[in-house]
């Protein structure tokens, strides 16, 4: 087959609309219509390839020589703005070279910057399919995102309605507030323990959330074991628990329960190949008879006692005492 130069150029325009033909000096003598469309006011023929583009691969030192000598993969970039990056292949021909270019990953910006249409790409080029895919996937992703958002909303709403902490099966803060209000309103005699796990954060941080969750579930079981049926065990924060003992204010009994709780919580918890260790600090406040504080006040007292236990070296319990009020709470 004999192809004369003009025919060959016209053929390239159709097949590779982003081609460049260069002569042995690196001068451009023909470009494809799509490539020229990127610089409509600057006819590329007559300019030198390296005046139009920065050659980033092969590296400028001897870059042009290389692409005139052997088939080469190219990376280049317009010298002027927008500095669109292009990639391509050059093949030496008749002293010069035939270079075919493509947008590569800069495609999205290029389509926007130069208002390209599907007519600018031959059907063998997957550019249009890629743009289609990006839009289609973005739309599908958006639909999924919206669904997730709605499900998340529904879950939050359901959790707000619930009285149960989903991870541990214990009562949650909402349930605890209800029970506390009910006991206070009835003028009941009861006591309240505020229990914080010691060293839990370390387990969570070093061993991961799965280990942390495992600890919380195990700890919850211990607390349920160590309390009576009618008592309340609630998880009110990440590693914070409240235990309510109805009709029980005897300090000796409460001290015994607190010590036993701490002792059992300190037993190592097997997880995968590890033994996880936590402990607990407990603050205790009681209500009943002439001293019947509001729920918030009672919780505050238990908190003060808990703080005293933590200051006392953790892994211990303290009863609320009026002089704790003077020390204030940490900020």
């Amino acid at each position: 087959m004999n192809i004369n130069c003009e025919n060959f150029g016209a053929m390239l325009d159709r097949l590779c609309p982003m081609h460049v033909l260069i002569d042995s000096d690196g001068g451009i003598f023909r470009v494809g219509p799509t490539l020229q469309k990127l610089r409509p006011d600057q006819p590329m023929p007559g300019r030198r390839l390296l005046d139009q583009f920065d050659l980033t691969r092969p590296r400028p030192a001897g870059g042009l020589g290389a692409l005139l000598a052997v088939p080469s993969r190219l990376s280049l970039q317009f010298r002027d703005a927008p500095r669109t990056a292009l990639k391509g292949m050059s093949v030496p021909a008749q002293g010069g070279a035939v270079v075919n270019l493509s947008f590569g990953i800069s495609l999205l910006e290029a389509v926007r910057d130069y208002a390209l249409t599907s007519a600018d790409f031959p059907p063998t080029d997957l550019t249009i399919e890629m743009l289609y895919l990006i839009e289609a996937k973005s739309a599908a992703m958006e639909a999924s995102r919206l669904l997730n958002q709605r499900l998340q909303g529904a879950m939050v709403a359901a959790e707000e309605q619930a009285f149960t902490d989903t991870l541990t099966g214990l009562k949650n803060r909402r349930a605890m507030d209800h029970i506390l209000t009910r006991l206070t309103d009835a003028g009941a005699t009861f006591s309240l323990m505020q229990l914080d796990l010691d060293c839990f954060k370390a387990v969570n941080d070093t061993m991961g959330h799965a280990a942390g969750d495992h600890v919380l579930q195990r700890v919850a079981r211990v607390m349920v074991d160590e309390t009576r049926e009618g008592d309340t065990v609630a998880r009110v924060g990440g590693d914070e628990f409240v235990l309510i003992f109805d009709r029980l204010t005897d300090p000796a009994l409460l001290a015994g329960i607190a010590q036993r709780l701490i002792q059992r919580l300190e037993q190592p918890i097997p997880f995968a190949a590890h033994q996880l260790r936590v402990s607990a600090s407990i603050g205790i406040a009681t209500a009943g008879g002439r001293d019947a504080p509001e729920p918030a006040k009672l919780l505050h007292r238990a908190d003060l006692a808990l703080y005293a236990a933590k200051r006392g070296g953790r892994a211990c319990h303290r009863f609320y005492a009026p002089d704790m009020e003077d020390d204030g709470m940490p900020g």
Partner: peptide, 9 residues
């Protein structure tokens, strides 16, 4: 109109 890049970020 159909602008190829209209939805491009």
């Amino acid at each position: 109109d159909f602008d190829l890049g209209a939805r491009v970020l």
